[in-house]
């Protein structure tokens, strides 16, 4: 699979590392020369293209015609829109991802044909709105623009759920523990599985019950 990433922040670095470890071919487009040189040193297996990713010929240089996925991660919303649109219209790339800063642009981008739109500020603000204390969630992945989320919660000895069987926990109906990471191993839980200290619960839930999930785990309300 060939993936093009446009941008240059930390996300690009981590995404590239993770994609390459999965065996994908990654091409990064960046418009700063020094940054390109740095990226090239850090990621030997990735191709780096120096140029403005919102120009068709730069995308062409990056092999857009043979790519399956484009991810637009620049700090400017209009740039991300244009990158995704050019990729789709000129190079027929069906899977396009854009990050937006203004959450209202999620809807705008969707209506203008961008495949998947992610708004980091939206994710963070919705977490705050739900009064979730973020330090207990070690990882949170929104799916389908946040309609459902996977979160990872590490259990400690103060938690109410400790020592309980899953069936006896107060987890809301709209949430399910899909997997438990125990001593580095993945365990698929059943109703009779007992939650132990240092367990990492991988929980799939609707956003509206996220705070209820945490309340059920902690047994207290902030």
């Amino acid at each position: 699979m060939n993936i093009i990433i446009v941008g240059g922040g930390k996300e690009v670095h981590f995404l590239t590392r993770s994609f390459i470890s999965k065996g994908y071919n990654v091409t990064i487009i960046n418009n700063k020369k020094e940054h390109c040189e740095k990226l090239a040193r850090m990621h030997e297996k990735a191709s780096i293209v120096y140029g403005d990713g919102t120009k068709p010929y730069v995308l062409e240089d990056a092999g857009a015609a043979y790519s399956n996925i484009v991810i637009a991660l620049t700090p400017k919303d209009p740039d991300n829109l244009v990158i995704c649109q050019l990729s789709e219209k000129i190079f027929k790339i069906r899977k396009t991802f854009a990050v937006v800063n203004d959450p209202k642009n999620i809807d705008v981008f969707n209506r203008l044909g961008v495949g998947t739109v992610i708004s980091t500020s939206d994710i963070i603000s919705s977490l705050i709105e739900q009064k979730i204390s973020v330090d207990e969630i070690t990882n949170l992945i929104p799916i389908e623009e946040g309609k459902v989320a996977i979160m990872e919660v590490e259990i400690n000895k103060d938690h109410d759920i400790l020592g309980k069987q899953l069936v006896n926990s107060n987890l809301p109906k709209e949430a399910i523990v899909g997997c438990i990471i125990r001593n580095g191993n993945a365990v698929i839980p059943r109703g009779d599985t007992v939650i132990l200290n240092k367990d990492k619960l991988i929980i799939l839930s609707l956003p509206k019950v996220q705070s209820d999930v945490l309340t059920a785990i902690r047994g207290r309300i902030d």
Binding site: T54, K76, D77, P78, D79, L81, V82, V108, R111, L112
Partner: peptide, 16 residues
């Protein structure tokens, strides 16, 4: 003075 901003605004005006 930014092409992509112009493109985005134009599309919002036209399509939405």
């Amino acid at each position: 003075n930014d092409d992509n901003t112009n493109i985005m605004i134009a599309q919002i005006a036209k399509s939405i």
